[in-house]
């Protein structure tokens, strides 16, 4: 009897061990060596040299900063929007299933397809966004090369793809809120906005925390959108080169596998720190409740 639960979960751990843990540890081993993609067998031990190199590299800090700012300008509006949309979808609507399916379609499109379309929308010469802007008298913006424009454009792709997904998660949580809570606040004279603020939001808190964590992890790993939007350098001044992109550029384009492994492990450590901070905040919040 006791063995069976463990037996049930072993396949996961076996597969995770083979395709998750072993590569993870091996990457760590690589990160302490100087290894080129073209000569994998020639590994020279360099200790923490790769990490020191990153510590003093402007490109690394720039990528870290970009990951953070793009994460911020993509996650915050995304979750706020999702919350608003979920609230609207929570009303009695005609064809509610249709709306929900529509919300989920951006999530179902591939990153490549979505980014390709957005790249066209944002193109400098003849892109739709610059065309719309010229009606309000704004000069064409070179989205791909401008500093904030590039980050904004990349974030907008993320927002477009993930808002609906988060909205549905919020919606599911909202529908689990007992209706009598709303009724009693209505009796107390609360309007819809007050209901939203004082009933919906507090009841959603665990869900919101969950989406924040998931979005943060997603933001840290952001890769496909900036790569397809402007190549592995992320713009000529690395304006939107994220950590993931920097790792790819070092490992697969430049072929410096040792350094790329060090970046991978740095990302892993950063995620651990983020998780720890999240746990502390979580505990603090629970205490204050």
């Amino acid at each position: 009897m006791k063995a069976s639960p463990y037996a049930f979960i072993t396949p996961f751990f076996l597969v995770f061990g083979a395709f998750g843990l072993v590569p993870l540890l091996y990457t760590g081993w690589y990160s302490l060596h100087s290894v080129q993609l073209s000569s994998l067998d020639k590994q020279t031990w360099v200790g923490l040299e790769n990490y020191k190199n990153l510590w003093s590299s402007d490109f690394f800090w720039n990528a870290l900063k970009n990951t953070f700012t793009i994460g911020l300008i993509s996650t915050v509006p995304q979750l706020l929007l999702a919350l608003g949309i979920a609230h609207l979808l929570n009303y009695k609507l005609r064809g509610s299933t249709l709306w929900r399916v529509v919300m989920l379609t951006p999530y179902a499109t591939s990153v490549a397809a979505a980014t390709l379309v957005f790249t066209l929308l944002y193109s400098w010469d003849g892109g739709m966004i610059n065309w719309l802007l010229h009606f309000v008298g704004v000069d064409p913006i070179n989205w791909r090369e401008s500093d904030w424009g590039g980050q904004f454009a990349v974030s907008s792709i993320v927002i477009w793809r993930w808002t609906g997904y988060n909205a549905l998660i919020y919606l599911a949580a909202m529908q689990a809120i007992p209706a009598d809570l709303y009724e009693s606040t209505a009796l107390d004279g609360a309007n819809r906005w007050q209901q939203f603020r004082h009933v919906t939001i507090p009841m959603l808190r665990p869900t919101i925390l969950f989406t924040v964590v998931v979005s943060t992890i997603g933001a840290t790993q952001l890769f496909g959108e900036p790569l397809l939007f402007g190549g592995s350098k992320g713009g000529s001044e690395h304006q939107y080169q994220t950590l993931g992109l920097y790792m790819y550029d070092q490992g697969w384009i430049i072929g410096n596998l040792g350094k790329a492994s060090a970046i991978a492990w740095s990302m892993f450590l950063i995620l651990l720190i983020v998780a720890a901070v999240n746990m502390l905040v979580n505990r603090r919040l629970r205490k204050s409740q």
């Binding site: 100087s34 190199n53 090369e145 000529s236 001044e237 430049i254 410096n256 350094k259």
Partner: peptide, 30 residues
């Protein structure tokens, strides 16, 4: 994609563009 693009599309001077390319190449060559 770094040096020339910065001069052509971001209005940097050729010297700035070359410096940027130089940093990039040093990174490439480790």
């Amino acid at each position: 994609d770094v040096g020339i693009l910065q001069v052509e599309q971001k209005g940097k001077t050729p010297e700035q563009g070359w410096d940027a390319a130089k940093n990039e190449i040093k990174d490439v060559l480790g």
